[in-house]
Design a protein around this nucleic acid. Structure first.
Lengths: 258, 258
DNA sequence: GGCTCTCAATAACATAAGATAGGCATCGTT
DNA sequence: AACGATGCCTATCTTATGTTATTGAGAGCC
């Protein structure tokens, strides 16, 4: 929806850089206060755009990377495939997320990033980051921070997969997505897009698609959440959060002091 | 064992700084080649030591932190506790690991770090890191990298909890610990210390203690791994790795080009 | 219009893992 | 020596989740 608008406008006249990175800035500022000048410093280094179709691989496992991708519109996911070919979705990326900023220190990823919908990205070349940190060392800590939030999210997923079962595991995931989507203005009347099939959901939560179906049915019958046609509706967020013990602090959405 | 030696020596005469950080340097150099001079730069900034007893909290959830801790000897773990009081171990820390380097960009952790045995740490104050990055920007990328390896390990745990069951999940964990311990010289004849109870193991792998017992029994009967008295014996690492589809690349133990 | 897909929903059945409980070591304390 | 605490092991029973299969709705295609 916001997605569609972005695409349409880009086709007519290119969006301004500020606009393209707006969601990222919004998320970042939610977490880490920084000046308008610093914001400008960062935006001015953002390079070209790229477009991917649904199902495309944005970054492949093992690939050598020289720029990081800021997701401007569309949805993607990190995924790992094991020897038997089982797919594990490890994180969902939404507009405003830096999908692979950690490739700056890493240079090579241990997993792939795949487009869940058509995606538009803005590039930030690693040599620009080098230069930025060189001239403004404070950005090291700031950009570093933004990658470390993913680490925190991963830890919560470990907790979710390791200690929560059934509807609570599912509910927790839906709560996380709700909070992250809300920050970038993608929740409307308790509804947000989640472009996953039930099979995908299973691959994120460690369930079979059948069990995903059972679990969704249960959440629906409890009146806590409804997922259908790639859309999530949560009428009473607090009730759902309470049901599954969700606490958003691991998302670091409260501004830091520095 | 190496632990005991370290402690005894420290009691008589303080170990040299080089010696105290040797395991960390060993791990880091395994991953990221850097010069002797840079090594010296880093070591010279390391501050005082601290000692913790088994069961102590090294860093508490939510605590504001002004230095990061390098584990010199002993074992620790990251853990998260959910609302019901269930404990989820999220990572094991071994000698040479920076247990909370990510607290530098974070300033506050979303989880606690607890000593599994008596522990000795060496401090690196965050203002020293500020200064180090200021004078030698390359260290930003290097230290950043070292935190990002934890992210990669977390992702593999998500895969492990989400898609592997029973003996493979357990085996994978034992393989990871084997590889990490080997780098710092703590594997001897296929044996290494793992100071966890079966309950702890369950809290790391998302099993009940009873099921941990079943699983260990199975691995033992298959001749793949033996865990008892806090010691792991793996006679044929390749066989175990093959059994559970373990691939060490996510540990980034091959030196990067830069 | 009738294909073929993919995805969602459900049912019937199988099994891995959780829950509860008891016995048996070991260890530190008094 | 007696005691309680802790950790390991086993047995039994229950349940959540996996497996396999069938049906129907909708989307795209020829």
């Amino acid at each position: 929806m916001a997605d569609g608008i972005g695409l349409a406008r880009a086709a007519i006249e290119p969006a301004l850089p500020e606009e393209r990175v707006a969601k990222f800035i919004r998320t970042l500022r939610q977490r880490f206060s920084f000046s308008d000048e610093e914001q400008q410093q960062l935006i001015s280094r953002m390079g070209g755009e790229a477009f991917f179709h649904k199902g495309d691989t944005l970054v492949d496992e093992g690939e050598w990377i020289e720029y990081s991708s800021l997701l401007f519109s569309g949805y993607a996911c990190r995924e790992k495939i094991d020897r038997e070919g089982n797919r594990q979705i490890v994180e969902i990326q939404i507009p405003g997320d830096f999908v692979d900023l950690h490739s700056y220190p890493m240079e090579q990823l241990d997993h792939a990033i795949t487009a869940l919908t058509d995606c538009r990205i803005v590039k930030l070349y690693h040599k620009e980051i080098d230069d930025l940190i060189d001239k403004h060392p404070r950005f090291a800590r700031l950009l570093w921070f933004s990658t470390i939030v993913d680490t925190s999210i991963h830890r919560e997923w470990i907790l979710n997969l390791g200690s929560r079962a059934g509807s609570q595991r599912m509910g927790h995931f839906l709560c996380e997505m709700y909070c992250r989507m809300e920050v970038v203005g993608l929740v409307e009347d308790g509804r947000y897009d989640l472009p996953l099939t039930q099979k995908d959901l299973g691959e994120a939560l460690g369930f079979t698609p059948i069990h995903v179906n059972r679990t969704l049915k249960k959440l629906r019958s409890l009146g806590l959440a409804d997922f259908r046609n790639q859309k999530v509706t949560i009428d009473d967020f607090d009730a759902l959060a309470d049901h599954c013990g969700f606490d958003a602090s691991y998302l670091y959405l409260t501004p830091r002091k520095k």
